[in-house]
Design a protein around this nucleic acid. Structure first.
Lengths: 141, 141
DNA sequence: TAATTTTTGCAAATAATTTGCATTTAGTTT
DNA sequence: AAACTAAATGCAAATTATTTGCAAAAATTA
C-alpha cells in the first residue's frame, strides 16, 4: 500500500540525514521501531525480524543509529540495553515492584536546559536527555 | 580515627534500616561509595576493594542494595552497569563525543512529580528518578 | 560498470552478570 | 555462651549481552 511505500521513503531519508547507508537491514530495524514508543532490545528486534538478520548485525546497526542520534539507549530493569527512537521523545514511570512501565511525555527538562548549560563549566550544548521515574504502581503500593 | 568508627556505625545503621544483614563485605561496598558522588561499576568496586571479595559477591550485594533502595543503577556509556548512592542524588551531563561526565544537582523534577502522578492512570507513588543529559562538551562541540 | 568503501553473516571471542552448591557467618533463640 | 536458622560468601561454571575478525555481498562513487 501507499503508506508502506511512504514509510520506506521516509526511512531512507532518515538514514541519509544521519549520514548512514540505506540498507534493507537498517530499514527493517527502523520499521521495527515503527511509530511506536516501545523501547526495544537487540534481542527483541532480532526476534521481531524473524531472525532475518544476524544478531551481530542488529548490534552494529543499533550502535550506528545511536551514534547518529537516531535512537537512544535507556535504563530499564536488568542489564539489557533498550533503545528507542529519539524522535519519539518521552519518559517512563517504572514500577519497582513488578516492572510495569507507563509512558509520559511532558517533563519540562527543556525549560531548564538553558539554566543548566549556563551553570556548567564544561559543556556547551545539550542535545537530549533520558529520564526515568521509579516508583510503585497502584497494585504494588 | 573517630571518623572511621563513626562511618562504620553509620553504615551499620544504614544496612539495618534497609533490612539487610551487617557484614564486612557490605560495609566495604558502602564505604567504597563513601561520601563521593562517583558512579561505580561492579568491576570498579571489586578492584577498589583489592579483590578482597568475590566479584559474584559484589554483584549480589549491589542487587540487594538496589532492591533496598540504597543505590540506583544509572546509564552511562556502554553496557556496563553503574551504581550510585540514592542519598547522593544528582545527575549527569554526558558528552557524546568523549564520554566526559559532569555532575549537576538541581533538576527540578521533584516539583513536577505531583503533576505527573496526578496525570498517571497506573501509578500511585514516585520514589526517585534518574536523569542524564546528553550533549557536547566544550572540547567536542 | 569498475572501483572503493561499508555492511553483513558466520564463528568465535570477550564482557557482564547470574547461579548451584558447599561452607561460613550474622543475628537470633535457648 | 552454645546451638540454631536463615542468609551471605567463595568458587567454579553457566548464562546473557555484546563485540570483533575475516571473507563475501551490497551500496555509493567515479
Amino acid at each position: 500500500m501507499k503508506t508502506q511505500v511512504k514509510s520506506v521513503e521516509k526511512d531512507k531519508e532518515v538514514l541519509k540525514r544521519a549520514g548512514l547507508k540505506n540498507t534493507p537491514a537498517r530499514q527493517a530495524v527502523l520499521s521495527t521501531f515503527g511509530t511506536g514508543c516501545l523501547p526495544l532490545s537487540a534481542e527483541q528486534i532480532y526476534q521481531s525480524l524473524k531472525k532475518k538478520y544476524d544478531l551481530a548485525t542488529i548490534y552494529r546497526i543499533l550502535n550506528k543509529f545511536e551514534r547518529g542520534e537516531l535512537i537512544r539507549r535507556i535504563n530499564l530493569k536488568g542489564g539489557t540495553g533498550y533503545y528507542e527512537l529519539v524522535a519519539n521523545h518521552h519518559h517512563h514511570l517504572i514500577c519497582q515492584g513488578c516492572g510495569l512501565i507507563e509512558d509520559f511525555s511532558r517533563c519540562g527538562i527543556e525549560n531548564m536546559q538553558n539554566a543548566i548549560i549556563r551553570s556548567s563549566k564544561k559543556f556547551n550544548e545539550i542535545k537530549g536527555h533520558s529520564l526515568e521515574l521509579h516508583g510503585l504502581c497502584k497494585k504494588c503500593s
